[in-house]
Design a protein around this nucleic acid. Structure first.
Lengths: 191, 191
DNA sequence: AATTTTATTAAATTATTTTTTAACGTATTT
DNA sequence: AAATACGTTAAAAAATAATTTAATAAAATT
């Protein structure tokens, strides 16, 4: 009967982890990470040792090339990294388990890209709009549209710069001075 | 020759707007908003009057049902809203042009959903893990995994609560006390 | 050096998502 | 009340994306 009990506990553990894995994968899907890649990260989140591509393949029941590309995506987002371990010639990977780090990499990197991408488009557009406005031959109606666009883009530029400052404060950790990481509630503490 | 000049200015204007439209659409794609939906928002961003579904259809060269579903998605994210205008029996829509509002709706709502979704999974999982740990029949190895999972999930819970506070500070505008919205640089100001 | 192991790339397949056309229902106008 | 205009839903088609199998390349072992 002892084996029966242990089986039960393992099942419960899988069920517990499974619920969180589903939630994490669904969350990532929310931001455009495909379900499989999200599930891979979530699965790795519960592993206490580094995983090989074969481990992942077995865990998710998928092919090795899929794991190879999926894990590369996760490395690009910087929430999985390759580790080295004496003896193993297979590549080994571990997931970032600190969600504050996760947040910083995931959003920080995207916001940075967003700001850069849009600022450069704004620069380009504003230059053209200025030309239109400065040109005396421009029809009044077109000129007014250009002026309105220009005002709107200046607002947008301010936002992009704000984003850049947000990225900095997230990556430097300054944001946690404003919004501290709080411990769990006392109710849970003295349990 | 006057008509030629005007044509030119309009073309330039379209080109200027087009560059920003591309950037906005690409940005939205980064977070899982499909290119067409992103492009629709970006197109609306430059319109100074409300648009009908037919306007959108003409602007993007797509079918009306596509516009109908796309605009609904944008309404769900709260970055487009329906407006009423005397005389028109067509539905009219305008895009949110303040990107701080955009940010707040887009990320705020997702973070809120993320926190709720994961907190409920964590609650569920922790309850099961406690059962496993409290059960004296549980194998030592399984028990230890359960304990480690539990510790990890407590960390995760702290993050989720932090996210909730972040959402609050974004939606209430408190975040702007910490990270003020700055005016454009003085160089541009006295231009 | 030959063999085996491992990871990646390429091509083909499968699945999913997006988009459209067609049909429907509701409201407005005539 | 009939006809028209508008928006949405449903079904079909088209386009994309994900996944796998097969082939290749690179490294390590024998």
């Amino acid at each position: 009967m002892e084996g029966k009990k242990q089986q039960k506990a393992e099942e419960l553990l899988e069920q517990a982890e499974g619920a969180v894995i589903d939630a994490i994968a669904e969350t990532m899907d929310l931001y455009g990470v495909t379900p499989s890649i999200g599930r891979l990260y979530a699965t790795m989140y519960f592993k206490h040792d580094p995983l090989t591509l074969d481990d992942m393949k077995d865990d998710l029941g998928m092919s090795k090339p899929s794991m190879s590309t999926a894990v590369r995506k996760l490395q690009e987002i910087n929430i999985v990294k390759k580790v080295w371990k004496k003896g193993s010639r297979k590549d080994l990977f571990v997931a970032e388990k600190n969600f504050f780090q996760y947040f910083s990499h995931f959003f920080g990197d995207k916001w940075e890209r967003e700001a850069k991408l849009n600022l450069s488009a704004i620069d380009y557009a504003e230059e053209m709009l200025q030309q239109i406005i400065n040109n005396d031959d421009t029809e009044e109606e077109v000129k007014q549209r250009a002026e309105q666009d220009l005002r709107q883009l200046e607002e947008y530029r301010i936002y992009c710069h704000w984003l850049e400052r947000l990225v900095h404060s997230v990556e430097s950790g300054e944001i946690f001075e404003f919004l501290p990481i709080e411990e769990a509630s006392s109710k849970d503490n003295n349990k």
